[in-house]
Design a protein around this nucleic acid. Structure first.
Lengths: 121, 121
DNA sequence: ATCCTGTTCAACCAATAGGTTGAATACAGG
DNA sequence: CCTGTATTCAACCTATTGGTTGAACAGGAT
C-alpha cells in the first residue's frame, strides 16, 4: 500500500461517490451516518470510502462520544493543482512556441498536418 | 465503461507511469516506442496505458506511416481544476467564516472542540 | 448491568486494472 | 512479393476495488 501521495489523492477522487462526499464536506463536517444517508449503499461501504479519503489525506476524523465526525482537509488539493498546473503550463508554452514557428513560416511550407486551420488557397 | 469524464481523468492520472507519460508529452509529442523506452514493462502495457489516457481525453493519436504519434491535449485538465477549485474555495470560505465567528465570540464560549488553540485560562 | 446508537472489523464475492505472452495488422522499403 | 518495424488485439493471470453480510466494539442513556 505504499502508493505515492499523488496517486492516492487522484485515485481517491476517481470515484463519484467519494467526490460527492468531498463536495458535501466542503460545506460542513458530517458524521458517517449523515454522509451515508443519500447513497444507496451500506454504511460499511461508506466507511470504506472514508478510509480511502483519509489515507489520501483528504479528510481527518474527530472523536466526539461515539460519533467520528469527518472534516475536509483542503490543503492536499494543492498537491494536485501544483502537478496539473505545471504540465498544463509546459504544454501551453510549447504550443505557443510551435504556433510562433508556424506563423513565421512561408505560407505553405506546412511542416506536418498538425492542428492548423485555414491556409487560404 | 460509461464512467463519467471526471472519473476517467482522475483515474487516468492515478497511475505514476501514466503521469510520467503525460509529463513527458507536455514537452514533446512521442511515438509509443519512444514513450515505452524508459519503463520496465512491455510495449503492450504501454499501449494499454495510452488507451486509458486517450479515453480520458488527455491525449490524441496521429497517424504517420506506421507510427501513431501521441499528442497531449491539455484542455481536459480544466475539468479537474474547475472541480478542485470549486470545492477548495467553498471549504476555504467556510473556514474563513468559522474563523470570524470564533474570533467574535466571548473568550471561552467555545461552541465545540473544533481546531482552536490557546484559550488562555 | 443492559441496551441502543454509531462505527468499524472480517470474510467473502464479482468486476476491474495492470501486467504478461503470442498472434495479428499496417505500412515503407528492397 | 517478402521483410522489418510499429503498434494493437486476444487470452490469460493476479491483485485491488467496491460492494455485501454478520459480528464486534465504544460509549451514552436507562
Amino acid at each position: 500500500m505504499p502508493a505515492d501521495p499523488l496517486s492516492r489523492v487522484f485515485s481517491a477522487l476517481a470515484d463519484p461517490t467519494r467526490r460527492d462526499m468531498v463536495a458535501r464536506l466542503a460545506v460542513a463536517d458530517a458524521t458517517v451516518n449523515e454522509l451515508a444517508a443519500p447513497y444507496d449503499v451500506t454504511l460499511q461501504a461508506v466507511s470504506k470510502h472514508l478510509k480511502v479519503l483519509e489515507e489520501a489525506g483528504l479528510v481527518t476524523r474527530g472523536r466526539e462520544a461515539q460519533r467520528r465526525p469527518v472534516h475536509l482537509e483542503a490543503e492536499v488539493f494543492d498537491l494536485m493543482t501544483k502537478w496539473i498546473d505545471r504540465y498544463r503550463r509546459e504544454a501551453e508554452e510549447r504550443y505557443r512556441r510551435l504556433d510562433g514557428v508556424l506563423r513565421a513560416m512561408p505560407d505553405d511550407t506546412e511542416a506536418s498536418p498538425t492542428r492548423r486551420e485555414g491556409a487560404r488557397p
